[in-house]
């Protein structure tokens, strides 16, 4: 097994799927000659040519709408939104169109397409290069939403998303691109959509996270172990369809749960996870379910003091976890 970064794993995933299946192609801003602003598609333009790695105009609705049409006509498009923050112009195409092609035709149409969107903060990206968008899209039936946190999951979930018969929003956390390294299995290594993963076993409390927060929670679990607290870390990996069984299992196992995300809290993913636990594992709880999230402000400011104040980080998670452990 080779050690890769998240961005390398994503590039490998696209490359291997494009080599395997001629109907797979990439469309987005700067994905061609430039290789993407994060170099996610570096080298693919030369390898596959301009009809399979398409530099689009600066128009997100166009990127997604064209991908929908291509998927109707037998292709498997990967539509790249350069930053998740700029997905709003495509929301009509994603929510009103892509998410309901199957439902509104009673299964006559389906759309095998992936929308890749770099998301998340902690990169000095300010209001418009830092956002978390998962809750907005996870609310929409007909969409699958994945948010891997490790290189192996990034590649394996990307492959699953490309091969999936339905639209998948694939969220790749910008901060993890080069920060998070890990072993990636040789071969396909497909990671099924809808399956969470226990990244660290524990017995005293559960940390539930995804994306960059997974890395932070694993750090925190290590520190808690030094205090004699055994923390389990559950990586959701897929936001929707959410792995209810895995959430219920860890809640029942430890009786104490802290859900962590950098997205704002109101009607967010943590709220849904907490509802699942309350509805299914209330009798097993030893403490109220807690959450640590970004604050309820419109978006992440540029100034570093404000950015740090916005972002959950290992220190904040550790403090909250100790609070939970002490209940």
């Amino acid at each position: 097994m080779a050690v890769k970064t998240v961005i390398e794993a994503i590039r490998d995933g696209m490359d291997e799927e494009m080599a395997r299946d001629e109907s797979v192609f990439l469309i987005g801003e700067d994905v061609g000659n430039r290789g993407g602003v994060f170099l996610a598609s570096d080298g693919l333009y030369k390898k596959y040519g301009e009809l399979r790695v398409i530099d689009s105009p600066l128009a997100e609705s166009c990127i997604v709408g064209v991908a929908i049409g291509a998927a109707v006509n037998g292709m498997r498009p990967i539509a790249e939104i350069q930053f998740a923050d700029f997905i709003a112009p495509a929301m009509n195409q994603i929510i009103e169109e892509a998410a309901r092609f199957s439902y509104r035709t009673a299964g006559d149409f389906n759309l095998p397409m992936v929308i890749r969107a770099p998301w998340g903060g902690g990169v000095h990206g300010a209001l418009y290069h830092s956002q978390s968008i998962e809750a907005m899209f996870a609310h929409v039936p007909g969409l699958k939403v994945v948010a891997p946190g490790t290189p192996a999951d990034a590649k394996g979930l990307l492959k699953a998303a490309i091969r999936d018969p339905d639209p998948v929003l694939y969220l790749e956390h910008k901060r993890t691109y080069r920060l998070v390294k890990g072993e990636v299995p040789e071969g396909d290594g497909v990671v099924p959509i809808g399956k969470a993963d226990v990244k660290r076993e524990g017995t005293d409390l559960s940390l539930i996270a995804y994306g960059l927060m997974l890395t932070y929670c694993l750090e925190v679990a290590e520190k808690l172990a030094a205090d004699g607290i055994s923390a389990e870390v559950l990586d959701l990996r897929t936001i929707r369809p959410i792995d209810r069984a895995a959430i219920i299992a860890t809640a029942r196992k430890t009786g104490k749960v802290l859900v962590v995300h950098e997205d704002t809290p109101f009607a967010g993913v943590a709220a849904e996870v907490m509802a699942i636990i309350m509805e299914n594992a209330f009798d097993a709880l030893d403490a109220p379910v807690m959450r640590l999230t970004g604050p309820d402000v419109p978006a992440m400011p540029f100034n570093h003091v404000l950015e740090e104040a916005f972002m959950p980080n290992p220190e904040k998670i550790l403090a909250k976890a100790r609070e939970l452990a002490a209940v």
Partner: peptide
């Protein structure tokens, strides 16, 4: 109707123009 090559439409207007461009892109590819 997929069989008849009629792309399904919703009620928001003009979205189908981009779908048509995408269908045609696939034909070109």
């Amino acid at each position: 109707s997929r069989r008849l090559h009629i792309v399904t439409g919703g009620s928001p207007v003009a979205t189908q123009l981009l779908h048509a461009a995408g269908v045609a892109l696939a034909s070109k590819q």
